[in-house]
Amino acid sequence: MRNFQADDDSILRQAMFDHLDRCLAGAQAEFLSSRVINTFEIQGQPIRLIVQSGIRKVQGHPGALTIRTTYTPPSAVPPYIDDVGSNGLVRYKYRGQDEGHSDNRALRHAMETGLPLAYFVGIAPGIYLPIYPVYVEAEDQSRHEFAIAVDQYLHGHDLDSIDTFQREYRTSVTKARLHQPSFRARVLHAYNSTCTICRLHHAELLDAAHILPDSHPQGLPIVPNALTLCKLHHAAFDRNLLGIRPDFVVEVKPELLREIDGPMLQHGLKEMNGTQLVLPKERASRPDRARLLERYEEFRSTK
């Protein structure tokens, strides 16, 4: 493969971002397979963007081009969820323990020169959520890790003088740019981008709904604590207008069943009473019955 010159670097990175834009525009959801991601070419030359090591370098370019986080099983919390540093940025571990490893040197060069990268977050085997551009902001050699800014507005600031407000802001942005989209992607992928109640199959109209909320001790951002719901059924579920039994059957509030209104109430809610959920094929991704029971008891107790 032809070695791109140093002055081609910005062209290479912009071409990669354009490629990812096109892939996502043609997808039915915001996640992509590694096969699709790795169809990237520049000037007729193929370049794999996802590699086994997790850190992608291109020959002739000292700075890393992409980074990757591996897939986490459905019932496990992804490692980056809680691994946010005191600066509010994501911690990304070294390749091994050697700070002089070529992959770590490539990330260090990207940090020192402010190069933008693409970050591929694993949500299922061979399936990734692309987040870009991201930036390597800092390095902690004692912890063998780098700090990654997952939003361009967090890039290029002084991290040594960060105060509590700035850390909270950075953490909230990291959650909005990484944690929430990755949770959504994991849940939608598990349910094949389908509303578990009404079978609506348009990802742009679907939400990843928690069974037990974030504030609950068991309200973890894991697939068994989630359902893919369309906007209507998500709102109805949150407001206890409908409930889901632990045997995966939908119940609609008796008051709603007695109401007479337009077609949305009739077909969108009343006719869902007694519906059996469409469940993920993978058993590990199916709703946790204990969490459903607790949520269902709340539904039953609400007037």
Score class of each variant (00 low, 15 high):
G122S: 13
F120G: 05
L154M: 13
L115T: 12
I148C: 03
Y132N: 05
S161I: 04
G122F: 07
A118L: 11
G122Q: 08
V134P: 05
S161H: 12
F146W: 08
D160E: 09
A110Y: 10
Y119V: 04
I131W: 06
D140R: 14
G156Y: 11
D158V: 02
E112W: 02
Y169I: 10
T113G: 01
L159S: 08
T113I: 06
P130L: 14
H157F: 04
H157Y: 05
A149K: 03
R105V: 10
A106Y: 05
P125N: 15
P125T: 09
E139Y: 09
P130Y: 15
R108A: 14
H109K: 10
G156N: 05
A149E: 10
R143N: 11
R105A: 14
E137D: 13
S142I: 11
A149F: 06
T174Q: 01
Y128C: 06
A149G: 14
E112Y: 02
Y153I: 15
A138N: 15
Y119L: 07
Q166C: 03
F120R: 02
S161K: 04
G114R: 08
V134D: 09
I127H: 11
E137W: 03
L154W: 02
R167H: 04
I131G: 09
S172W: 01
V121D: 07
I148H: 07
P116L: 04
D151R: 06
L107P: 09
H157N: 08
D160I: 00
Q152K: 13
D160C: 02
D158H: 09
D151M: 04
L115D: 06
L107R: 09
A124N: 04
H109A: 08
